[in-house]
Design a protein around this nucleic acid. Structure first.
Lengths: 125, 125
DNA sequence: TGTGCATATTTGGCAAATCGCATATGATAC
DNA sequence: GTATCATATGCGATTTGCCAAATATGCACA
């Protein structure tokens, strides 16, 4: 006999996924813009393996997906139901923050780092 | 120095609260109608101490409140933000199920039990 | 004052989540 | 090939959550 609460388990699982401050912040970032791991690492100030672990949890739950671009891996939000919950909890994304990629000094990805310019220092020979 | 994710902790805590099938079902019941513990016990088919424990978690989080009425204790939803999340996840309450108290055969509270009528059986003496 | 009823709390064992750290993978540049 | 860079995975220790069972509280009524 199936348990009456089984109906609620998938919903509870999604809530549980959001019930973690780091994952929640990652999702709040990703709903504005796809981001690479190094960007999240810099924004959250957590070690890279830890970010990667949480991204795996989100990926295996089908909430985010990744796309390689050169050396970097960009994650983006794919689950509309999760976006709905984020809107309900955190409010809708402010239009002026959507697709706005802030430059993080600790992020080295090509979309963050300013293009390199030659820097020549003259010294006495 | 405060952690950047601290901003998200209160939101994550609320999600965590909903991230449990039994608590979620309790809240889904309570958003329709205040219910006594015995009613939830019968609806969820779980032992009474277990229901009471989950109610305590919800109560201490400020999501539900209780009101005594005679021998029974009725719980009701008090947090509008939680109601918003329930709507976003489970959909709005169908109007025809609001304030509809189903009679549960295992619930003995006065609002559930049909009023007693005399039942007289004649037997041969 | 005792007895019964509805609900609450405590305790404890076990499973799962969390998170730090070491290391592996896989692609690119040299 | 080797080195390097971004990211992923594995492992272990600690913490937290879950749930069952026993017991406690508190109130109403006789």
């Amino acid at each position: 006999m199936t348990n009456p609460a089984d109906f609620y388990t998938p919903y509870a699982d999604r809530f549980k996924l959001l019930g973690h401050p780091v994952r929640l912040q990652i999702l709040d970032d990703l709903r504005r813009n796809p981001e690479c791991v190094c960007h999240l690492e810099a924004a959250l100030r957590r070690p890279q393996p830890y970010i990667s672990q949480q991204l795996r949890v989100l990926r295996e739950a089908g909430v985010v997906a990744d796309r390689k671009d050169g050396l970097n891996v960009y994650y983006h939000l794919v689950d509309p139901q999760t976006a709905t919950l984020l809107n309900a909890a955190l409010g809708p994304v402010l239009p002026e923050t959507r697709n706005l990629r802030e430059k993080l000094p600790d992020c080295t990805c090509p979309k963050c780092a300013p293009p390199l310019v030659a820097e020549i220092t003259l010294v006495e020979s």
